[in-house]
Design a binder for these strands. Structure first.
Length: 411
DNA sequence: CCTCCACCGGAACGTGAGGAGT
DNA sequence: ACTCCTCACGTTCCGGTGGAGG
C-alpha cells in the first residue's frame, strides 16, 4: 500500500516536468559545441597550437580572465578539436587537462601526469624526482607532442613554483617527444609572484579573455536555453534579466547560467509552466544567500564571534556601531565561552575582512571630539546569518547569553 | 584656529604547523 | 629522521588623523 503511494508520488513528479528538456547543459561542467563570442581567443589559441600538428613544439601560453569568461571551456574545446585533427592526420598529439585546484602539489601533479601515461605511481611514498624521471621516460618512448593544460594555475604558485620551473625546462631532456604548456589563471597579476625564468618561458604567448557584456551573455543564454528548456516556457524578460544581473557581476557567464537554471527550478517547484521575472528575482536572492551562508559557515571562530557581536548589537537596535562597541561585546562573548581573546588591533583586521567579504559594511568616519572609528553595520539579513553562526558548537551557548551594552553618552 | 578623542593601520616581530630538502 | 623555510595568524608599539567643541 505504502509502496504504491510512494511510486505514485515519484511518478507524479517525473511526469510533471513541463519546463526542462535537459538541465545538464546549464551546469558549469558542460562544454558546449559552439562557444559564442570567443572566436578571437579560440582562433588565437588554434594559431599557436597548430604547430603541434606539424610535429613542432607550440609556444607555451598563458591565459587570463576572470571567472565565467569562458577560459576553461574555450581551452578544452580547442584541445578536443586538436586531438581530433591529429588523429585524422595520424600525428601523435596528446592534450592533458589538469585542474590545479584539486591537484595542488608538485608530487600529485607529476604523479597524475605519469599515471595518464599508464605508469603505476603510488599516491604517496616515492621521491618526487623519481616520479619526474618516470614521467619523462614514459613520454619519451615515442615521438609525440604533448600539451598540458594547467587550469587554475595560480593555485599552484602558492605552493612553490618549482614544478613549473621543472616542467618548463623539460624539453631539453626529451629526445623524441615535445611538451608545451597552457596555463589558465583567474588572477591577472599572478605572474608577479613568478620566478622570472618561469615567467618568460611560460608566458611566450598571452591570451586575455575579457568579461562578456550583457548582450553577449544574452546570446549565450538563448543558445543554451534552446537545449535546456522546452519551447516557449521562458518569459521574454527572463533571459535579458539574467544577463543584466550577471553582467553586473563582472560579466560572469557561469553566474548567468546558474541564474537561468535556478529560476527554472523555482518555477518547477511552484508547478508553473512558465518561468517569469519573479522566479529570476527569487533565484538571484537565493544564490546570494547561499553564497553568504557558505562564507559565514566556513569563517574561523574568531571572525564568527566578531560577526555575532555585530548581530547582537544590531538586534539591540544599534544602527552604526563603532569598533569599540563591537570589541566590548566581543570581549564578553569570549569570556562567556572561554576562548582566546584577541587584541583590538586584530579585531580591526577581522572587521575589514568581513567587510571585504560583503557581510558587513565598515566605513571609517570621524566623529570629531569623539574620535575616529569605523562605522559598522550588517549588510545581509540577520536571521540567516545568526542561524548559521549558532550552528557552530562553540557559539551555541551564546544564544541565551544577554550581556548589557555599555551605553555611550554621545549616541 | 587649535585640541584632543578613539580609533586607524603600518611595521616589525613571535609562534607553531606543515612542506621541502637532505 | 632531521633541519630549514615558509606562511598564516597574532601581538606590540606607535605615529597619524578628521572634525566637534572649545
Amino acid at each position: 500500500m505504502e509502496n504504491k503511494s510512494l511510486n505514485g508520488l515519484f511518478q507524479d513528479l517525473l511526469e510533471n516536468d513541463p519546463i526542462f528538456k535537459n538541465k545538464e547543459v546549464l551546469r558549469p561542467s558542460y562544454t558546449p559545441d559552439l562557444l559564442l563570442h570567443r572566436d578571437v581567443q579560440i582562433n588565437n589559441l588554434a594559431t599557436i597550437l597548430v604547430s603541434a600538428l606539424r610535429g613542432e613544439t607550440p609556444s607555451n601560453i598563458l591565459i587570463y580572465g576572470k571567472t565565467g569568461t569562458g577560459k576553461t571551456a574555450a581551452t578544452r574545446y580547442v584541445g578536443i578539436e586538436l586531438e581530433k585533427k591529429s588523429e585524422e592526420m595520424n600525428v601523435s598529439c596528446v592534450v592533458l587537462y589538469i585542474n590545479c585546484e584539486v591537484i595542488d602539489t608538485q608530487y600529485r601533479l607529476l604523479a597524475n601526469l605519469a599515471r595518464q601515461f599508464g605508469e603505476d605511481v603510488p599516491m604517496t611514498g616515492w621521491p618526487t624526482d623519481q616520479v619526474f624521471s618516470k614521467f619523462k621516460e614514459s613520454i619519451d618512448s615515442k615521438e609525440q607532442v604533448i600539451i598540458i593544460i594547467l587550469d587554475e594555475i595560480d593555485k599552484l604558485i602558492k605552493k612553490g613554483d618549482n614544478v613549473l620551473y621543472n616542467l618548463s625546462r623539460i624539453n631539453t631532456d626529451l629526445k623524441k617527444s615535445k611538451i608545451s604548456m597552457i596555463g589558465v589563471s583567474n588572477d591577472l597579476k599572478f605572474t608577479e609572484f613568478l620566478d622570472p625564468r618561469v615567467k618568460s618561458s611560460l608566458g611566450e604567448e598571452e591570451i586575455i579573455f575579457p568579461p562578456y557584456d550583457a548582450n553577449q551573455i544574452s546570446d549565450i543564454l538563448r543558445d543554451r536555453a534552446q537545449i535546456a528548456y522546452k519551447n516557449d516556457v521562458l518569459d521574454d524578460v527572463v533571459i535579458p534579466l539574467c544577463a543584466a544581473l550577471a553582467a553586473q557581476e563582472h560579466g560572469d557567464a557561469r553566474r548567468a547560467l546558474d541564474l537561468l537554471r535556478v529560476s527554472g527550478e523555482f518555477a518547477e517547484r511552484e508547478n508553473k509552466s512558465r518561468v517569469e521575472e519573479e522566479h529570476v528575482r527569487n533565484a538571484q536572492d537565493k544564490i546570494e544567500v547561499d553564497r553568504i551562508v557558505e562564507v559565514v559557515r566556513t569563517l574561523p571562530t574568531q571572525s564568527k564571534l566578531v560577526l555575532y557581536s555585530v548581530i547582537y548589537l544590531q538586534n539591540k537596535g544599534y544602527r552604526n556601531m563603532t569598533t569599540g562597541q563591537v570589541y566590548n561585546i566581543y570581549l564578553k562573548f569570549c569570556h562567556n565561552i572561554d576562548t582566546d581573546v584577541l587584541t583590538q588591533r586584530r579585531i580591526t583586521d577581522l572587521i575589514s575582512e568581513l567587510d571585504m567579504l560583503g557581510i558587513i559594511n565598515a566605513v571609517v568616519v570621524s566623529k570629531g571630539r569623539y574620535g575616529r572609528t569605523k562605522e559598522i553595520s550588517l549588510s545581509v539579513s540577520i536571521s540567516n546569518v545568526r542561524k548559521v553562526l549558532l550552528e557552530d558548537n562553540r557559539l551555541k551557548s551564546l544564544e541565551s547569553f544577554n550581556p548589557p551594552v555599555v551605553s555611550q553618552a554621545h549616541l
